[in-house]
């Protein structure tokens, strides 16, 4: 078997790393977005809608 500098395995591994990177990036973006929504919708003396409904 000839030795190629790039084995098919490496491509697959890169795909996996790239996928995980994108998932983690998306998770960060999600938390950021959620923070923006939660903080901007908190009015003084009032709970978020879901918590308000639970009372």
């Amino acid at each position: 078997m000839a030795i190629h500098p790039e084995h098919e395995l490496h491509a697959r591994r890169r795909g996996r790393n790239l996928g995980l990177g994108l998932v983690l990036g998306a998770f960060v973006a999600l938390i950021f977005g959620l923070s923006l929504v939660k903080i901007s919708h908190l009015r003084e003396g009032k709970l978020p809608a879901a918590a308000e409904a639970q009372k």
Binding site: L9, R12, R16, L18, G19
Partner: peptide
């Protein structure tokens, strides 16, 4: 080791997860 992975030749890709 990398060798055993090449032997199996079927290391999981992202899609498998």
């Amino acid at each position: 080791s990398d060798l055993s992975a090449i032997d199996r030749g079927r290391e999981a890709g992202f899609g498998d997860y």
